[in-house]
Nucleic acid binder design. Sequence first.
DNA 1: TAGGTAAAGCTATAGCATATAGCTAACGCT
DNA 2: AGCGTTAGCTATATGCTATAGCTTTACCTA
Lengths: 232, 232
Amino acid sequence: MPTEPSAGTNSGTGDRRARRRQETIEEILAIAEAVMIEEGVNGLSLSEVARRLGVRPPSIYKYLPSLMALYDALFERGQQAHLEAMRSAMVDAEPGLDALSKGLEASGRWALSNRALAQLLFWRPVPSFRPSDEAMAPSVEMVTLQRRALAAAVRKGELGPAADSDEALYLTSTLIAGVLTQAFANEPDLPWGEGRFTPLFPRLLQLLTAIYPTSAPRRRGGAEITTAPGRR
Amino acid sequence: MPTEPSAGTNSGTGDRRARRRQETIEEILAIAEAVMIEEGVNGLSLSEVARRLGVRPPSIYKYLPSLMALYDALFERGQQAHLEAMRSAMVDAEPGLDALSKGLEASGRWALSNRALAQLLFWRPVPSFRPSDEAMAPSVEMVTLQRRALAAAVRKGELGPAADSDEALYLTSTLIAGVLTQAFANEPDLPWGEGRFTPLFPRLLQLLTAIYPTSAPRRRGGAEITTAPGRR
DNA sequence: TAGGTAAAGCTATAGCATATAGCTAACGCT
DNA sequence: AGCGTTAGCTATATGCTATAGCTTTACCTA
């Protein structure tokens, strides 16, 4: 097993080499992200990374086993950064609808200011690359955070009880996915809050109260979701 | 200008050669689409196309000047097919909300059953490729179709007057974009109508009546979408 | 029907990518 | 101080896009 140079000889502590090595890996990841921003997610190449790092291409393989492994490391790093952006926005907010809204907005802002990573995370532009389970792990916590916010919103009476469901989660994630997809495709250089699409988001979120009304006073012609698939 | 072999020598009619040539181009496009389905949009390579066509790679260049030109041709063909799917669904429907809904659903169905082309159209997975203006042309007509449906819905009283606006157009396209993005990313093998996301779509569309209420009876805590700068 | 010509194929080659093999020098731990 | 691991290198295999230049095929015109 000649790969995996770590955890072999030295008994416990004394890894200065390992630290150096880790620093180099960090540097490679940073360069790779810069390359993706400049050349597109698919424009990433180990040769270009090596060039910028000041080494020959084969040397990169001392740190990462393949181009796909590099994508995977970037994916994981992106997941963590995204989760962190969302979490920090949510803990600073009132639990419930406010936390949900602030969290999703933070998600959108993060995506727009980290385009390359966001594309890697959400649009999978490199079909031959499938993220490892390990790299996917943070998304589990994102689900938890959002479910918790929905539950709190129901508890506080901001939303009806049906909002405490996976379905409501899919719905909110679909709304933000739509906004981001359109923003990326049509006005990729505008920051959050400008342009035609991202300003729609807070308004779309308000729709949650229409979809999950708190005590459901029926009204004619309204947006009653459950019944009636039809037009009228 | 040694390229562009057409329209040179022969005075008027007699182009059997040109027909043959066009057939080959069609064949190349069909093969390319198959390759994209199997290997992913980025997995398309001229060499693989040549292999399946039974010629050597350089011969492809007699028909298309570059890989990007192949992408562009596929893009254009996809645009046209997509537009056609949408249009035929809309002409078979009642003008207004029904046409809008059927058209958007047809769009979604087309995307899910033409994954490779849809990805090329909507997610731009090949960053170095920018579609030509010519290839983008059909999207103008798509906008027209949808604006017309919105206008009809307003005329018939299905939606409030603010729905006859670009803003409403962005909103509906954002909704379908969200559904498709989620469906593609999370359950790419399910057809329209199955899974967690595509069934949300008709329900989301019903929300239009909440966003653009026809005569707006105020209700407390509702999803009042403020005053909408949309023109009319 | 007999060219003449343009199209459609080919080989050869340049340039760049990922990836592997195997060598050497230096670093740093014991 | 010594020795093993590591980090770099060159050389090479393979596959890709793309160009140059040649040969053959096929078809339109006279």
